[in-house]
Amino acid sequence: MVTAVQLLVNGLALGAAYALVALGFVLVLNATSAVNFAQGDLVMAGGLLAVALAPLLPSVLPVPGLLLLPLVLVLMAGLGLLLALVAYLPLRRRPPVSVFISTIAVGIILQNGAAVLFGPEPRVAPPLLGDGVARVAGVAVPEQSLAIMAVAALLIGTQHLVFSHTQLGRRLRATAQDPEMARACGVPVTRMILLTFAIGAACAGAAGLLLANRYFMTPTAGGDLILKAYIAVTVGGWGSVPGAVVGALLIALFEVGVSWLLSQPVAQGALYGVLLVILALRPQGLFGEAVRRRA
């Protein structure tokens, strides 16, 4: 029983970080109907950015990770804007596969740029609050796991509030649903798309900072993370925002559970096997596809 709770805590912490990655991916997907393949490499960039910035903070400050978070969010949002300007806006009238390739290109540049700057070794970012482990009824809960869940919940909650209750959010949603119609209604579509890329990259950066403490970060980590985000969005239903979050939690729990039962490589392989079965039997995802093709 204790083991099960322990696994649940680990799975939820990992899932919270995956959820941020998938959230950024699906927001950009909805606003542009293009796949941002650089999302995984943006997570890696966020993680290594935190690693690089950490020594710059005065060492007397108590919660280095938490102080880094706003900095990483802002810088990554800037990187997201740059990504949109370079790899999306010039290609918006071309077939979606063009953006797929341009974001692959940006991902390659980020990945190998990071390898040149940081070398291939795994790096560790400072924890959000501390390295301590709380004991709750016999279950060891690392403070970092709690902090990951809290920060992810806070960011996802904020995103949800902004999208559902503000004028800006309505404009962002209108852009995602039907850019042509939104433009006709006076929504500044291009600015909304730029903003969406910034939010998506900021989500990725936050996930990078969170993951880089518990799971380390290497320049090639992005390939695995984009696959996870992609699977989460497919499982949750292509284009569904809540589906992406739930999908991310599900695959993290699956990964943690199977890793404990068998091994990490088996978990990865099994996750992919399950994905293929889902694609073959229920391609609209477990909860139905949110975007419908217009005939």
Partner: peptide, 29 residues
């Protein structure tokens, strides 16, 4: 793999083939 996903929208094909690559690498290592 092709039979499972090639009738779907093309982004699923990119995903499935990316997965194939990851699994083969995992197996070899």
């Amino acid at each position: 793999v092709g039979l499972a996903v090639l009738r779907l929208d093309s982004h699923y094909f990119a995903l499935a083939t990316l997965g194939v690559a990851q699994v083969l690498h995992l197996l070899v290592v």
